[in-house]
Design a protein around this nucleic acid. Structure first.
Length: 885
DNA sequence: GGGGGAAGGACCA
DNA sequence: TTCCTGGTCCTTCCCCC
């Protein structure tokens, strides 16, 4: 057994699963045996324990299987694997980037610290935030007893009878988090918050600028003590109210306050920070402490993976810098326990331990073996970790992939109660979906029974849903199926959850973008006036993306659903291009149905098409008309329904029929020329340039003066021209923006593809292909946090408000008017305010509100959903499922 | 055999 | 007496073509 606790209680293997995880600051040197004994005694016999036991046994079986597989590996296989591993190692080595300075900041025992600050009598007591069921975090006094986050409160009480449990107050934590983030933004406007108390920052640019800063810019004052007057305070960091100086929440921690040794500094005292990265980070922590009376720890390293580990090194209230040299990185990684690496959890750790791998140096030594035993994703990640590699790019934000709500309750066995609860969850979820303007096709019901067994049941519809009734209709059926399966026994639940995923193109949440893309397509609109039916999907693969299995439930929804565009457009003629996937069951079914309906629908649709063409200016009108005319001529059977998606090439097929071969060209929504490409990036670049020109030079599009269509894929001249425009545009943006919002050539592959996407605060999002593409707008001229003289780049008027979100909103509005003016239209579009995030998720610190101080307006999906592991570069998931089943 | 949805699980804060 | 919630990603299974 790998831990003492197990042996102390009879050597049962399952114990490791429930044993204390002391991989946390403030928990070193604890009596693990004693603590684990208490945990086991408190849990033994409970259903939770039984379930953990079962899962532990599953893991053990997988390990067994893995060991058997290991025994069968031949020398030759190992040799071959070794060569492969070394090849990858040298490739990775070549890609090593030590040029960035990444900082990971983590507030110390955040929730607990906030509570201790606000209630000083808690300061010297062991306390935790949460409930008897579950603790969110604990202070360092409590950690000495083994009380930690993710532990049930009642066990915490057993470990430490004097433990004070304070209920969570997320409103308060959010407010404090906002203050901290405003400070983060001064060092990296594009910092990546990971939760309320944690963020990654790229200090590289800040450090460059910092070198030329005068001392005054690096001078920060101490918070005034209760004896100081307001005049002695530094306004920029003035405390909201008089309190003591640093609360010294952690007795034995080093102080971040230079020269003060944790002792209250004299009123009016200040500190001049240096220009090095250590000084800059210390300054940031100092400011956080002065502002919030809370301490933060930080890690400084060349990449996110290492920075994260480093931030834990001198916790609490400390910082650690790993020098940006290969030698230092490799030394650091040598003795790093694998469990310290983000992404390696208790299961992965156990499996690695079984192979004799406990540190990153072991990881490197055993890599050939690991490559044979683990999935590619896993061992590639292990390889990166062992080489001390990680992401050097901090993503701006990632699109949300799903949204869910779930709740645990005592026990729910009655069908009516379960149904009613299910409906409640759907209501909550629908509300959250509405706030973000999301619609998704997959509804998942999650059930956990009283034995802690979790089941998920999902159904993917051929159309997207968002309302309570729509979601509940599916969830209810899924639930009913489960109830029926269990019958005559009741379904005894302790948790129910509903999730929506497989979001459709974000058009529904972006009226502006939707409207603009609407111009791409021959006049179509829905009854609400928002052209929902204009969802554009450029990617042809989406034509085959109508997942729906023909089970009983599926068939039911097949009957209920509205007729999808793909079937209407493609199915009618039954013509397929060589590139298209074959039609699915649903496509065919709909095609048949439509064949029966075709006659009337055609006529009506044509009339509608003609009637909803926006009354644009002459040029725009001409473009729309020509496109519409062609469309009408060729798409007699077209029936554009609001819930449908269609490939843009298809919708844009001005010279070919809808059922015929997909056109290779797209219509620019600004200049209305046909752009001969199906490459979104190329097309987007064209739109970028057009829009940029439209805003700055009315009635002029500099991409080409020719009336002929643009062939961006085949014509090297035009291609080069667009590239040139893009480069020039980037240079202009670089020049215009002192805060360097535009990232260029970092190590994020997505960025290269969608570089314009990553310019919050100065872009409009064009929704195509299930993703939004960004149309670059002119730069706000003076848009930093410091100067606060905000001039709208469109109307050129100085704005009253210093609030960057308000300002950004104004720019959007202006730009809309400008674009519409260019298009000759007078339609006013509603503009989405910054998204409101899922309140429940946010409450737990998982999703984060708009970074107001940076002027970023999150425009789609989650305003700041936690980035994917891939995007974060932290790791792919280390599930070792290869042996799990 | 490949593609893709469903299901389950690891992991994170 | 009492062990969360919301999210992402990965893997495997299985159906369909």
């Amino acid at each position: 057994m790998e831990n003492g606790a197990a042996s102390s209680t009879g050597g049962e293997g399952f114990l490791s699963r429930m044993a204390l995880n002391d991989n946390k600051a403030g928990m070193e040197g604890l009596d693990r045996d004693k603590i684990n004994k208490i945990i086991m005694e408190s849990s033994k016999g409970s259903r939770f324990y039984e379930n953990e036991l079962k899962r532990e046994q599953q893991v053990n079986q997988r390990i067994e299987k893995m060991m058997q597989q290991k025994a069968q590996i031949t020398e030759q296989q190992l040799k071959k694997a070794h060569a492969q591993v070394e090849r990858l190692a040298s490739e990775l080595e070549m890609s090593r980037d030590l040029s960035r300075v990444i900082v990971h900041v983590d507030m110390d025992a955040f929730y607990a610290a906030v509570e201790m600050r606000d209630c000083p009598e808690l300061k010297d007591k062991p306390m935790a935030v949460g409930s008897m069921s579950m603790l969110s975090t604990s202070n360092y006094h409590a950690r000495k007893y083994g009380v930690r986050a993710a532990m049930p409160g009642f066990i915490g009480k057993k470990l430490c009878p004097s433990l004070v449990i304070v209920p969570t107050n997320f409103d308060k934590y959010r407010a404090v988090s906002g203050e901290i983030r405003r400070i983060f933004a001064d060092y990296d406007p594009h910092f990546q918050p990971m939760s309320l108390d944690e963020a990654y920052l790229d200090f590289t640019d800040h450090l460059e600028q910092r070198q030329s800063w005068p001392d005054s810019s690096r001078t920060h004052y101490y918070r005034a003590s209760s004896t100081t007057t307001g005049e002695e305070q530094l306004p920029q960091e003035a405390a909201p109210e008089d309190k003591d100086l640093s609360p010294v929440l952690f007795d034995d921690s080093p102080s971040s306050l230079p020269g003060s040794d944790g002792v209250s500094a004299a009123a009016g005292a200040f500190e001049v920070f240096g220009t090095s990265v250590e000084e800059a980070v210390r300054e940031m922590r100092f400011r956080i402490e002065q502002k919030t009376m809370l301490t933060a720890s930080a890690g400084i390293a060349p990449n996110t993976m290492l920075a994260k580990v480093c931030s834990d090194k001198n916790k609490p209230n400390g910082q650690y810098r790993l020098p940006s040299t290969r030698e230092a990185v490799m030394d650091f990684v040598q003795n790093l326990p694998v469990r310290k690496v983000s992404g390696i959890g208790k299961v992965s750790e156990k499996m690695l331990n079984a192979l004799g791998v406990s540190s990153c140096s072991h990881l490197r030594q055993q890599m050939a073996l690991l490559s044979l035993l683990f999935s590619e994703a896993s061992w590639h990640h292990f390889m990166q970790v062992s080489l001390g590699l990680g992401s050097t790019y901090i993503p701006r934000y990632e699109e949300r992939k799903s949204m869910s709500t779930e709740r645990t309750f005592k026990e729910l066995s009655k069908v009516e109660e379960q149904m009613s609860f299910c409906r409640e969850l759907c209501e909550d979820l629908a509300e959250d979906m509405k706030k973000e303007g999301l619609k998704g096709k997959t509804v998942t019901l999650k059930l956990k029974n009283v034995n802690f067994e979790v089941k998920t049941r999902a159904l993917t519809l051929p159309y997207a849903v968002a309302t309570v009734d729509e979601i509940f209709a599916v969830a209810k059926d899924l639930l009913k199926t489960e109830i029926d399966n269990e019958s005559p026994q009741p379904l005894r639940l302790r948790l129910m959850g509903v999730r929506i995923s497989a979001f459709v193109s974000s058009d529904d949440k972006k009226p502006l973008q939707r409207s603009i893309i609407g111009f791409l397509q021959p006049g179509k609109t829905d009854s609400s006036g928002s052209p929902q039916g204009m969802i554009q999907k450029l990617d042809k693969k989406h034509l085959s993306d109508h997942p729906f299995q023909a089970g009983p439930l599926a068939q039911k929804y097949q009957r209920q659903e509205e007729v999808p565009m793909w079937s209407k457009q493609r199915g009618l003629e039954g013509v397929q291009t060589g590139e298209e996937p074959k039609q699915s069951f649903f496509q065919r079914a709909h095609a048949k149905r439509l064949q029966l309906q075709a006659g009337n629908a055609d006529t009506q649709e044509e009339e509608q098409n003609a009637s909803v063409i926006p009354s644009t200016g002459a040029d725009a009108q001409q473009g729309v008309e020509s496109s519409t005319k062609a469309h009408k001529n060729n798409c007699a059977a077209s029936d554009l329904s609001e819930k449908d998606s269609v490939s843009l090439p298809e919708a844009q097929a001005s010279t070919s029929g809808c059922g015929g071969k997909v056109s290779e060209s797209l219509t620019c929504p600004v200049c209305f020329r046909q752009v001969k490409t199906t490459d979104l990036t190329v097309f987007n670049t064209h739109i970028d340039q057009c829009l940029s020109d439209a805003s700055s030079k009315p009635n002029q599009c500099t991409v080409s003066d020719s009336e002929s269509d643009l062939d961006l894929e085949n014509d090297p001249k035009e291609c080069e021209m667009v590239n040139k425009c893009t480069r020039e545009c980037e240079v202009e943006v670089e020049k215009a923006e002192s805060s360097k919002e535009l990232e260029v050539n970092r190590k994020d592959p997505k960025k290269d593809q969608h570089s314009s996407k990553k310019q919050p605060g100065k872009s409009m999002v064009l929704l195509i292909n299930g993703d939004s593409e960004t149309v670059t707008s002119p730069q706000p001229q003076s848009c930093n946090d410091k100067g606060r003289v905000l001039i709208c780049p469109v109307c050129q008027l100085t704005q009253d408000s210093n609030d960057l979100i308000v300002f950004n909103h104004h720019v959007d509005l202006c730009l809309n008017q400008e674009v519409l003016h260019e298009l000759g239209g007078q339609i006013s579009f509603p503009i989405n305010p910054p998204s409101v995030i899922n309140s429940k998720a946010r409450d737990r610190g998982r999703l984060l509100p708009v970074q107001a101080s940076t002027g970023k307006t999150k425009r789609r999906g989650s305003p700041s959903s936690p980035p994917s592991k891939k995007a974060k570069g932290l790791c792919p998931r280390n599930t070792i499922d290869k042996f799990f089943r």
